[in-house]
């Protein structure tokens, strides 16, 4: 099974006419995702050309797209200046699941967007995330489909390329995935490790979970405590940034050590104290999962 989305979602792409939006819309459609509409303000009424001669309608607003096509999930590829309002527009239109790929959104914009999405009951994944992929079923975002394979392992990660690295080794080792979720590298994200863990706990097909964390914040510690109290399947962890100096932002807006809580050492300890096996190198992740499943 998969979490948050399944093959039945009707997806609207916000920013579909942009460079990234158009490229990844075609990728998603080629993978089998039901992209039913696109939105770009000022370009409503056009058709977007998908792969193999398919076309989908482009609307000026998300509300129109929802009314005309019944879209229930959205993927946002809108530039940073307008991305928070794109999220709020989707939430206001009643879209229940919103994936925001955009990196570089002002944090204060996101405080308002997250507050509104919570009020409307919409789940936001990201921002600054690669999205979510359910192998063989559907993909929302930018995770390349040919890297994944169906199977029993769930993967949750704050990083995009590190997700690919881990998935690559898992798939090569014959360990397919139920769902891979990139929760995003920003300090304020809509879906946390714990939200994902709680969803995977309800999924009978998930037999092991991989959590890929990094320096900054305390989300990994909260996840570790939750795992020990609530989760029956084994969990393997990895923390990036052991060599990161304090006070410096390591690429991701959220990856900055302030105080002792955000360090890799602190997070690794929290994982280990709660029964999570921690891989020292990305290549070890697949081996630890295989051992845990034996």
């Amino acid at each position: 099974m998969s979490i948050f989305v399944d093959g039945t979602n009707r997806v609207v792409v916000q920013g579909i006419t942009g460079r990234d939006g158009s490229f990844h819309s075609r990728q998603m459609m080629a993978y089998g995702t039901r992209v039913v509409a696109g939105v770009t303000p000022g370009k409503g009424g056009r058709d977007f050309e998908g792969p193999d001669g398919t076309t989908i309608p482009v609307y000026d607003t998300v509300a129109e797209a929802v009314a005309e096509t019944g879209a229930d999930a959205s993927v946002v590829y809108v530039p940073p200046a307008f991305a928070a309002s794109a999220i709020m527009e989707a939430a206001d239109a009643g879209v229940g699941f919103i994936v925001c790929v955009t990196e570089g959104i002002p944090v204060l914009d996101m405080t308002r967007a997250h507050a509104l999405a919570r009020d409307r009951g919409s789940r936001v994944l990201g921002p600054n995330c690669p999205g979510i992929i359910c192998p063989g079923k559907t993909t929302l975002g930018i995770i390349p489909g040919r890297m994944v394979a169906p199977g029993p392992v769930a993967l949750i990660s704050r990083s995009g390329t590190l997700t690919y690295e881990a998935v690559y080794h898992l798939s090569r080792g014959g360990l397919g995935q139920t769902t891979c979720v990139g929760i995003g590298g920003d300090p304020l994200i809509g879906t946390s490790f714990v939200d994902c863990l709680a969803a995977f706990a309800e999924d009978p097909d998930t037999e092991a979970v991989v959590m890929i964390g990094e320096i900054g914040g305390t989300a990994e510690q909260e996840a570790a405590t939750w795992v020990s109290a609530n989760l029956d399947v084994p969990v393997v962890g990895f923390i990036a940034g052991r060599t990161a100096p304090p006070g410096k932002r390591m690429g991701h807006a959220g990856a900055i050590i302030s105080g002792s809580a955000g360090t890799a050492a602190e997070k690794t300890r929290a994982f280990e104290d709660n029964g999570i096996r921690v891989a020292r190198r990305p290549v070890e992740i697949a081996g630890l999962v295989a051992e845990a499943l034996r």
Binding site: S159, E214, T243, A244, M250, G251, A255
Partner: peptide, 22 residues
């Protein structure tokens, strides 16, 4: 990628080296 970049620095250290940068 930021996560892979951090993991690369960590791996340099793991093999006994010192990263010059992120």
């Amino acid at each position: 990628g930021a996560g892979l970049a951090m993991a690369t620095m960590d791996l340099v250290k793991y093999y006994g080296g010192e990263p010059a940068n992120f």
